[in-house]
């Protein structure tokens, strides 16, 4: 509803901000609960079956990292996709809001893919006996991670003025279209080389309780990523505002 004087609109704004605050707190609590639940599902309820059928049963405990590993990647890739959309939107409309979304997407994406890239080797060492293998999926993920770290480097090394959003968006578009080519190159490259047998059993035959644990994990990680994303986005918006206010203040003094 539109208010005609400034007094009620101010009050309205306060109510709005209070409502936002409550909603925010509720979401954080929800994320924590979901995390808790996912943890219980993953550690207690999911059956101790290794999806690597050839390995003995006692190895199955390592499998539980899978409930962190996969959700982390899903959250990370989603964030990268948001970065691409926001970058394209920035070039379209030149709105700094899109740029803030792009920053948040890239940073959250790097954090979550890092979690995935760290949990992967922790699992691989006991199961495969090696920390890392140049399997197509691993390689592609690593390349993706490298690209977005490079993106963040550009942001760090570009003077903060109108140039940074424009250049970062130009880079993000380039990187995004690289992913399918990377896929084609890496697939072909690796299939020509011997590689360890990864999945003995069919990946699709997940026990229903394992599926529950997995989807709980995915929901929890997506919500967490969403919250971090929003936090980072608002931080960036504030930073943009502060930069303006600083310069205003500096000019007023002269």
């Amino acid at each position: 509803m539109a208010s005609t004087t400034s007094q009620p609109s101010h009050a309205q704004a306060q109510v709005d901000s209070k409502a936002r605050q409550t909603g925010w707190t509720a979401l954080i609590i929800l994320a924590l609960l979901l995390m808790e639940w996912a943890l219980v599902e993953a550690l207690k309820i999911a059956p101790p079956i290794s999806i690597v059928a050839k390995h003995p049963h006692k190895m199955a405990i390592y499998m539980r990292i899978f409930y962190v590993h996969v959700p982390a990647f899903m959250a990370g890739f989603t964030a990268f996709f948001v970065n691409f959309l926001a970058s394209a939107a920035y070039l379209w409309k030149r709105s700094l809001k899109s740029d803030a979304l792009a920053i948040a997407g890239a940073e959250v994406g790097v954090v979550f893919t890092s979690i995935g890239l760290i949990t992967g080797p922790i699992w691989a060492k006991p199961i495969w006996g090696i920390w890392w293998t140049w399997d197509p999926r691993l390689t592609l993920t690593l390349v993706l991670w490298v690209m977005y770290v490079s993106y963040l480097m550009l942001r760090q090394l570009t003077p903060t003025n109108e140039q940074q959003p424009r250049l970062a968006a130009a880079l993000a578009i380039f990187f995004f279209f690289d992913v399918p080519i990377d896929y084609m190159a890496i697939r072909w490259w690796r299939t020509q080389h011997p590689q360890p047998v990864l999945f003995g059993g069919a990946n699709s035959g997940l026990d229903p309780r394992m599926a529950t644990a997995l989807w709980c994990g995915v929901a929890a990680f997506l919500l967490l990523a969403g919250l971090l994303f929003r936090l980072r986005y608002r931080l960036e918006c504030d930073r943009q505002r502060i930069a303006v206010l600083r310069r205003e203040a500096a000019l007023r003094e002269t």
């Binding site: 903060t160 003025n161 109108e162 943009q240 505002r241 930069a243 303006v244």
Partner: peptide, 9 residues
């Protein structure tokens, strides 16, 4: 006409 550098007019 207005010109912004970032948000800075």
């Amino acid at each position: 006409m207005t010109r912004y550098f970032g948000d800075w007019p």
